[in-house]
Amino acid sequence: MAAQGRGWMLLLLCLSFVWETVSWKTASNDTGPVPVVIWHGMGDSCCNPLSMGFIKKLVEQEITGIYVLSLEIGNSIAEDMENSFFMNVNDQVELVCNILSKDKNLQNGYNAMGFSQGGQFLRAVAQRCPSPAMLKLITFGGQHQGVYGLPRCPGETSQICNLIRKMLNVGAYSSPIQDHLVQAEYWHDPLNEDLYREKSIFLADINQERGINESYKVNLMKLKKLVMVKFLNDTMVDPVDSEWFGFYKVGQAKDTYSLQESALYQEDRLGLKTMDKAGKLQFLTVNGDHLQFSEEWFVTNIIPYLK
């Protein structure tokens, strides 16, 4: 009887091993569509039916069976919108990394779409949190080199926008404002480059301005594609060249340089030059204002990257 019991035990162990092996192969060889993660911009929320809610439904309509996660930063839509102005960006990125790591639908990799400031925030996720793997990143009007101005703020009320402008004017690089005002954390003053490099707690870090974090470079270069959409008639992002990693030349706020002319590219601090040479960087344009594009344009130009 003892021998028979051991035989049954061995059989069960073998069956268990076979089942786990088959399950692992099924998961790792999943042929379904790659999931998509979306991060909204300033003054928006995860589920606004006129913005992110519409984009989510459009992607689901065009790619059957796809899983789309539109990130909600907070416990409600109202809190999500408020956090887009007043929650420390580094804390937001850490929160999102935790959300993604726990989502079982994303463990085999995902594509990401960042709208406006959500673009540089998702790039920070790619650089800081390589697991689960971000495969492609598409940014729409993302401010990759920051902004120097806030000409058209999309807050719920003018009071919010006026408050932000006052805080930025008082001192964008003071610790209290850097810690608690999102837009200050990607404020890039070309007239005070040294102060920006020293005090910027988010953008200067992810753009390797104070030193080289090799993991940032290694992780970003793992992307299969980095697609950057520039809005040619953008009245919000100043300068619009930031949407392609360009910015104002040092010491003034009129003439700009391109990504390829920047030290970030020429010294390959983030691996962008290597990625560009490998065909991993894609530069798209839209003849519209900030985040203004047609459904037809999106389906024609963006959906193919998600398939």
Rank of each mutant, 00 (worst) to 15 (best):
N29F: 09
I73W: 00
Q282M: 09
G155I: 13
T26Y: 11
D189K: 03
K307Q: 14
L12C: 15
F121W: 02
F115G: 05
D30F: 05
E198Q: 15
G155E: 13
T157A: 13
E214L: 12
F54R: 11
S242E: 04
L12E: 10
G53S: 08
T300H: 09
G142E: 06
V34P: 07
E209A: 14
S116N: 09
S174K: 06
D268W: 06
C47R: 00
G146P: 03
Q117D: 11
F54G: 07
Q92T: 10
G65T: 03
E193V: 14
F293V: 05
L106D: 00
D205G: 03
S23T: 11
N169G: 14
N287K: 09
P151V: 10
I164S: 04
I177E: 03
H40M: 08
L291G: 03
K224F: 06
T157I: 07
D276S: 15
L232G: 02
I99D: 09
I38G: 07
E79M: 13
H144G: 01
Y110S: 04
K199I: 06
V59N: 00
D205W: 01
E243C: 13
Q266S: 09
I160K: 02
W244I: 05
Y148L: 05
L195I: 11
A112G: 06
D103Q: 11
R6P: 00
K224S: 12
H180A: 04
Q117I: 11
Q92I: 09
E156C: 05
E156T: 11
L220R: 01
L69S: 03
E243P: 04
D189N: 15
P176S: 15
G5K: 09
N83G: 03
D241V: 07
E193R: 13
K136R: 15
L137G: 02
L203A: 08
C153G: 05
I138R: 02
G149Q: 06
